[in-house]
Amino acid sequence: MYHKEKSIQIKSSASALYNNLSVLRIAPRNLTYFSVVHANVVNMVSASWDGLNYSHRQLQSKEGNVATSSSLIMQAAWCVLPSRELLVLTSQKGIQMYESDGSIMVYWHALDTPEAPTGVSSGAILVFDVPSKGSNITLSEVLEEHKESITDMASECSGSLECIADMVSADDSGLLCVWKSGEDFQLLNKIPGFDMCCSSVKLWKGTVVAAYGTGQIRLYEAVTGIVHVEVNAHARWIYSLDIAPFSGLLLSAAEDSFVRVWHLTMTPESNTVEIAHMYNECVTDTQICGAKFCDGDGYAFAVTGYDLSEIIRYTQA
């Protein structure tokens, strides 16, 4: 179903972090951006769609505008907003927001200060108001339903529908919080995790897709928390999930060196979701820590592994 393409070399290897790969497709310029975290540095690569041209940039964790070698970066991801795309870095010291190409830091927010004791492991979710341009970004709300460290968050646009979930957050205890965004965030549901870490979570057509340290994937109805499906997907800890929203393809990657592609189908009459296994790929002797589709149809995906200084790409045959 997929075949391996030429790998993209990065300047330093991937750290063993959940979801340690972020991808942004820039269609007007025929470019794809990739970002991978290594300790206190983010490796960013801009790649042409034909795979012939690359440019590299490294972003370092900062405290204000001063680079700091002691602050580890915990996550780097692109946030695609209606009028803007930002690259957001979270470190032990604070949150950095860059223009999508990493060229300009537009905002920095300090963490764990006396005025705002919201450290990286407190479980707090910070909500920011972001204008369509400029750096006048403000903290508007702090959501404090989680008591353990946040592991992942995902969103999906629900349009103007009332009481439809459009964000889900997960933590180290496996707790999932389902939210409706708006002027203020509204908590719709809390789904217990039974003290097993949920490492990665996605939201698709009102369904929460959650991956766990047990190697299991569970599909929940977001608003009610009813379990649709539970799959013993991997032999070891799952590090990353991704969904291609247009096709319903689901990507999972784990410590067991396997990347798997699944297909989700929605049955509107019964309001249930089914999952079918489609494809396996073994990345030999590699603890996979990031996997992302490179497009909304799932035509291509990319993979990173702990201590691996490359991004491995696959496209449909």
Rank of each mutant, 00 (worst) to 15 (best):
E148I: 00
M44L: 13
S309L: 01
I8Y: 01
R260H: 08
G182M: 11
N65F: 11
F185H: 07
W179S: 02
R218K: 12
A222W: 03
Y18H: 08
D297F: 15
A39T: 09
A254K: 06
V303G: 02
A47P: 02
H56S: 09
R313M: 09
Y279I: 02
A235E: 14
L203Y: 05
Y279F: 15
V41I: 15
V303P: 04
A47K: 12
I137F: 09
S181R: 15
S55G: 09
F185V: 09
A154E: 05
L203W: 04
G102I: 06
L175M: 14
T284C: 02
L188W: 12
Y98C: 03
K205L: 11
M97D: 01
D256Y: 12
S270C: 13
S160C: 06
V229L: 10
V259G: 03
S83G: 05
H234D: 00
L203G: 01
S69M: 01
I226K: 13
A124S: 12
L52P: 01
N40M: 10
H56W: 13
S252L: 07
C157Q: 06
T284V: 11
K180Y: 03
Q186F: 08
T118D: 08
F246P: 00
V41Q: 09
Q186G: 00
D50P: 05
Q96Y: 01
C282H: 04
V41E: 10
T267A: 12
L126F: 06
K133M: 10
L308T: 12
V283G: 00
W78Q: 03
V106K: 06
A27W: 04
S149H: 00
L126N: 06
I104T: 15
